[in-house]
Simulated assay, not measured.
Amino acid sequence: MTDAERHNDAVASGAWPGGPMLAFDVETTGLDPESARIVAAAVVAVGGDTAPETTAWLLDPGIEIPLAPDPRPRHRGEPVTFDIRIICDDRDADAITRALAEAFRTGTARTYPTRDGMRTRLYFTADLKRPEDDQPNAC
């Protein structure tokens, strides 16, 4: 049985797309896995019958964090903008959008069909949420 056939069988049985999913991301001091150290990590749980749940950590790597290769300010109160691209089943698009909105400040999702027409491509522009983003506005 090919990978595509196994995937189609799993989708048809409802084994994966409707169940819970977990996304994990790390930021490191460099690209070399032998010497880079983790400085930030995040886990987002989405799916099933529960609301999205995000856990994030900032870590002290114990060494100087190298400057980013581009001149944009990092962690100085200015947002760091990045793109998120996901291919998913149509039924999962809303849950994924909610989970990303919980974890990041995102713009409206741009959606496109995949070439085979079987899934959806989601494109977001996002930046890191700051603690004040979750505070209600006081009048």
Rank of each mutant, 00 (worst) to 15 (best):
1 M>H: 07
1 M>L: 10
4 A>Q: 13
5 E>V: 13
11 V>W: 04
13 S>A: 15
15 A>V: 04
15 A>D: 03
17 P>N: 09
20 P>C: 09
20 P>I: 08
22 L>T: 14
23 A>M: 11
23 A>I: 12
24 F>D: 07
28 T>K: 10
30 G>I: 06
31 L>W: 10
31 L>I: 14
35 S>H: 02
35 S>R: 11
36 A>Y: 04
38 I>S: 00
39 V>D: 02
43 V>A: 10
44 V>Q: 00
45 A>H: 09
45 A>V: 10
46 V>H: 02
46 V>C: 03
48 G>M: 04
48 G>F: 02
49 D>N: 12
51 A>W: 00
55 T>S: 08
56 A>K: 06
57 W>Y: 09
57 W>T: 03
62 G>D: 15
63 I>V: 15
65 I>E: 10
68 A>N: 05
72 R>M: 04
73 P>Y: 01
74 R>L: 10
75 H>G: 09
76 R>S: 15
76 R>G: 13
77 G>Y: 03
77 G>I: 06
78 E>A: 12
79 P>I: 02
79 P>K: 02
82 F>C: 07
82 F>A: 04
82 F>Q: 03
86 I>R: 14
89 D>S: 14
91 R>K: 12
91 R>N: 03
95 A>G: 01
97 T>W: 03
98 R>Q: 15
101 A>S: 13
101 A>P: 06
103 A>I: 00
105 R>I: 11
107 G>H: 11
107 G>E: 15
107 G>V: 14
113 P>S: 14
114 T>H: 14
115 R>E: 15
117 G>L: 14
118 M>S: 14
122 L>Q: 08
123 Y>V: 06
127 D>N: 14
128 L>I: 14
129 K>M: 00
131 P>N: 12
133 D>V: 08
135 Q>P: 08
139 C>D: 09
